[in-house]
């Protein structure tokens, strides 16, 4: 069995707001831009006050999964969720349930965007904000 990993934020005070992680996430799928990004960076109240990074923390007991009415979201072994697009009806309950706002939305297909825990974005963080680590129980 492989170890469950997740993207973790080491220190968001190091974040300069370059958003390379966001671009990496969509690029991994073969696109430019930000349409498929499951990680988000925004200022905490204007650029002068620094940035916050939002990404799935791979909850061991994920609230998003609990509200999914069709079973499209299932708990990943070790923490976090998997999305089965075929079962998803695009109700958006999962988006509301996540306290971090870490489930994003793709309006083009009307479906959520959920982190797949690949760690690709971490390779493009030039300022050591992100790390790819084992989910600890």
């Amino acid at each position: 069995m492989s170890v469950a990993r997740r993207v973790a934020i080491v220190d968001n005070e190091r974040c300069v707001g370059c958003q390379l992680c966001m671009f990496a996430c969509t690029r991994r799928r073969g696109y430019g831009g930000l349409g498929f990004s499951a990680i988000h960076v925004k200022s905490t109240g204007g650029i002068e006050s620094g940035f916050t990074v939002i990404v799935c923390r791979a909850c061991p007991d994920p609230p998003c999964q609990k509200v999914c009415p069709t079973g499209a979201l299932t708990v990943r072994e070790g923490g976090g969720v998997r999305l089965n697009m075929d079962k998803c009806i695009g109700c958006g309950y999962c988006v509301d349930a996540c306290p971090f706002g870490a489930i994003f939305w793709n309006p083009e297909v009307n479906k959520p965007i959920v982190c797949v825990y690949c760690g690709y974005c971490v390779d493009f963080c030039p300022h050591k904000v992100l790390t790819f680590e084992e989910v600890k129980p």
Partner: peptide, 10 residues
Amino acid sequence: RVACSHCPVA
């Protein structure tokens, strides 16, 4: 130090 969008330099 801060960056423009899509620039690692900051």
